[in-house]
């Protein structure tokens, strides 16, 4: 197999897509399964350490994991030639199109989650961390919005992962 072999590159992009996705969803689940439920149990004087040191670092890998997952995923779908069929959920595609329907639903769910990360969670978390100025009321509203959206993404991650794995192992 030559280095210029197209198949080699699709395998590399798929691997990069999965590594990025684990970085993203791993941090999403860390926030929802570990950090958020533990925060109320942490003594008040220790909480700033989480918000000032752990949260910014975790959010960095979280949001860029999301960006690279989407980027590599779209490149992979294009290279494999099913990107348009997937966007249309396989509707109107030659039968059988089950794989396109499954990966398409997964792609749409993942794209909604990516949007939530970059355009709802991240801007609101910047207010919570104090890197963007906000009144105390705005900070409380931002904390609630970021938390709820993160929970929405946790909920969506379950069917999204089903679609990704189903499509990858259907044939």
């Amino acid at each position: 197999m030559e280095l210029s072999d197209f198949n080699w590159w699709t395998q590399f992009i798929r691997w990069a897509h999965i590594i990025s996705a684990i970085m993203w969803i791993g941090h999403l689940w860390y926030f929802n399964f570990t950090q958020t439920p533990t925060m109320p149990k942490i003594p008040a004087e220790l909480r700033p350490a989480v918000v000032r040191f752990i949260l910014p670092e975790a959010l960095f890998w979280f949001r860029w994991g999301a960006m690279f997952t989407l980027g590599f995923g779209l490149i992979l779908a294009y290279m494999n030639g099913y990107i348009l069929d997937a966007i249309k959920l396989g509707i109107g595609s030659p039968s059988p199109h089950t794989k396109a329907t499954a990966i398409g639903i997964g792609m749409w769910l993942g794209t909604i989650m990516w949007f939530n990360v970059w355009f709802i969670i991240w801007p609101n978390q910047q207010k919570v961390m104090g890197t963007v100025s906000a009144t105390p009321d705005e900070v409380n509203a931002a904390r609630r919005m970021a938390g709820l959206t993160s929970r929405v993404n946790t909920m969506l991650s379950i069917p999204m992962l089903y679609c990704m794995v189903f499509a990858g192992h259907y044939y």
């Binding site: 929970r151 946790t154 909920m155 069917p159 089903y162």
Partner: peptide
């Protein structure tokens, strides 16, 4: 909805219910 999402078990159960819905849609469109 907010009450459901504020509960971690509620969020996970909702995720599994959505997965069943998605699986039905995939097979319905197949």
């Amino acid at each position: 909805m907010e009450k459901l999402l504020n509960s971690l078990p509620g969020t996970i159960i909702a995720g599994f219910v959505l997965t069943v819905v998605v699986a039905v849609i995939i097979h319905a469109l197949a």
